[in-house]
Amino acid sequence: MALNCMKSLRSITIRSEVIGVLGCRTYAAGKAKKGAKAGGAADAPKKSLLTKELKSTTVVGANILKEGGDPKVLADSEYPDWLWHLLDKRPALSELRRKSTETLPYDDLKRFVKLDNRARIKENNSLKAKN
């Protein structure tokens, strides 16, 4: 059986063009301008088409819809108050454990309970994984 396969493989003649196409991957060459070097000025970064005025009045790239344009930048007073507190530093679990739970504000107490529950779940999971 194996000898028959070897004989049939030897009898197949493959043209060199087919080997060239199957053996290597090629890419189409881009259209080169006359007098331009390949990979020269075409790879240089292009200047932005947006003006400074447009950049300062709109949020460029924030539009997620197919229709419409980018949203305009509003005055600070038109945004909700909670937005300005998103990047405020919040206390870590170790810092919250050092404080008394009776004196913690409601938001910090809620954060303490959430972080403490998460830490206990992770500890229980690691103990179960070791057994």
Rank of each mutant, 00 (worst) to 15 (best):
D70R: 02
K66A: 13
P71D: 01
L115S: 02
C5W: 07
I12A: 10
E95D: 03
K99P: 08
L115Y: 00
L83K: 08
G40V: 00
E95A: 05
K7R: 11
K122C: 10
P71V: 08
D76N: 01
I64Y: 00
L127T: 08
I121E: 04
L54Y: 11
T26D: 04
A92T: 15
P91H: 02
I14P: 00
L65S: 13
I14E: 07
L9A: 09
N124H: 11
V113H: 05
P45A: 09
G39F: 04
A2Q: 09
T57S: 03
K31D: 00
A44I: 08
S126M: 11
R10N: 10
G61Q: 03
K31W: 06
G39Y: 08
V60G: 00
L115Q: 02
G40R: 11
K66D: 15
N131S: 08
E123L: 11
S77M: 08
V59P: 00
L86A: 11
G23D: 00
Y27F: 11
Y27H: 01
A42Q: 15
E123P: 05
P80F: 00
K66Y: 13
L83R: 03
K33C: 08
P91E: 09
H85L: 10
A129S: 02
L3E: 14
K110H: 07
V18K: 08
L104F: 00
A41I: 03
A42W: 01
S126H: 10
A28K: 02
K110G: 04
F112A: 05
A36N: 14
K99W: 10
R25P: 07
A38S: 11
D108N: 02
V113W: 04
G68K: 02
L104M: 12
S8W: 07
G35L: 04
R111D: 14
T13C: 12
A41K: 15
K130V: 13
D88T: 11
S56Q: 13
K66N: 15
T103M: 03
D88S: 11
A92P: 08
L109R: 07
P71K: 01
G20R: 11
E102R: 07
N117K: 11
A92E: 15
A75H: 05
K110C: 12
K128G: 13
K31L: 03
L50P: 05
T58L: 13
S11I: 07
G23L: 04
G30C: 09
K66Q: 14
I121W: 05
L3W: 09
